[in-house]
Nucleic acid binder design. Structure first.
Lengths: 170, 170
DNA sequence: TATTGTTATACTCTATAACTATA
DNA sequence: TATAGTTATAGAGTATAACAATA
């Protein structure tokens, strides 16, 4: 296993700056080749999502909103009267994980629960004035962030990217 | 049953102004409008990633590989001698979270640790014959899954999607 | 002094079973 | 019998601080 194969680094570009270290031993990896993973949709989608969400977390911290809370509030804002069950279906959440979230948003005065007109088991969720005001700002911040994240893409590419992603999960 | 249905719902197409929509009573939501979230990259990337990974989990269960284990093994397979630190950098993992993973893969006889040729602190990670055999199958399964997931996309669209995603996180 | 690998640990996220009250 | 909301809890995933050995 000593000096058999040269390094695996035959990545897209040839090594631009050979360091002062000899490159003959096959046991040393200089440039990690991740091309196989980069050919997989799941890997790329996950890496991209995490990169976006990392910045999202920072920008939404002033509003005290994590991604899930932002999503829930946004759906309630645009669908006043929506039920918990509908939220779970729309956002792919599990009911038990939504309970604490709803209670927290209610305790913060951002949403309110009203009896459902036709179903005694359910509640309609509505944004409060405070919740509306917060989300107007939060959604504007999200759109600003969006523009930054997609800076390197043309408008056509941005539209294409979103459409193709939706073809995967919708 | 139908007392009054001032629903907020329409098909997701005709209304060109998603924001600033005059909602009157809106106590009953028939179709949940998620168009705002669907305009955000992070939301779409995350939903797509979760959809892909859900099937990935099922297909990789026979190999006993979760996504992270698959990624780690794949990088080791294509970069024999890679160190833990390099794995962390390449896959955006934190060192403490990799320790147990490496130990587990080693205990399963899929990888082996060898002293690093030039750095006494580090170990070079190598796939065993068993690990290679497993990953040849696992990567083939991943590629089959990939073809299924991207079924609705043309070859050009597939290439475009991966390239655009990499523009986000690379 | 900085870095690699490691331990311990805490916090978040996600998943499952089971209960209640209504339909 | 089925569904909406809830409770409790377990498991996976992710995070930080701190330490020993080596550079």
């Amino acid at each position: 296993m000593a000096t058999r194969r040269t390094a695996v680094s035959k990545s897209a570009k040839p090594d631009p700056s050979p360091l002062s270290r000899p490159v003959e031993s096959g046991d040393i990896v200089e440039v990690v080749d991740t091309r196989f993973l980069q050919s997989l949709l799941g890997y790329n989608a996950r890496r991209a999502a995490l990169a976006v969400i990392e910045v999202f977390l920072q920008r939404m911290a002033p509003y005290g909103l994590r991604p899930v809370e932002f999503s829930v509030l946004s759906v309630i804002l645009h669908n006043p009267g929506v039920t918990s069950r509908q939220l779970c279906t729309a956002l792919n959440l599990l009911p038990p994980n939504l309970v604490g979230l709803i209670q927290d948003l209610q305790a913060r005065g951002l949403i309110s629960k009203h009896p459902h007109p036709h179903d005694g088991r359910a509640f309609g969720l509505h944004p409060t004035a405070q919740g509306k005001a917060l989300m107007v700002q939060a959604e504007a911040t999200a759109q600003t962030l969006e523009a930054e994240q997609l800076e390197r893409l043309t408008p056509a590419q941005r539209k294409t990217l979103l459409q193709l992603l939706q073809k995967i999960y919708l």
